[in-house]
């Protein structure tokens, strides 16, 4: 899977959990869902589980730095790594 394909899956999952209304029209890689306040703990867990479920991998969130945690970039990195 290419980086672009990983990104596409992540963004689709984010939209499914958060809903379009609360998201910016253009979701950048450094968009942080937690800082932006669009996910709380429960929604974040649901998002992680949804990505894992769709892709059949386990996201190793502990590998992310504090800066990457909660960002689109962080998810893409983990997904790309998980399916290597």
């Amino acid at each position: 899977m290419t980086r672009g394909e990983c990104r596409e899956i992540i963004v689709r999952c984010i939209k499914e959990i958060v809903g379009n209304d609360d998201l910016p029209s253009q979701i950048e890689d450094d968009y942080n869902l937690i800082k932006a306040g669009v996910v709380d703990s429960l929604k974040f867990v649901k998002l992680v589980l949804l990505i894992e479920d769709k892709c059949g991998i386990k996201l190793e969130l502990e590998k992310l730095s504090n800066e990457e945690f909660g960002t689109v970039r962080g998810f893409i990195m983990l997904l790309a790594k998980g399916i290597e």
Partner: peptide, 11 residues
């Protein structure tokens, strides 16, 4: 909470 086979918590 179920998403496919993944379990979330006792929600």
């Amino acid at each position: 909470v179920q998403l496919g086979d993944s379990s979330c918590c006792w929600q």
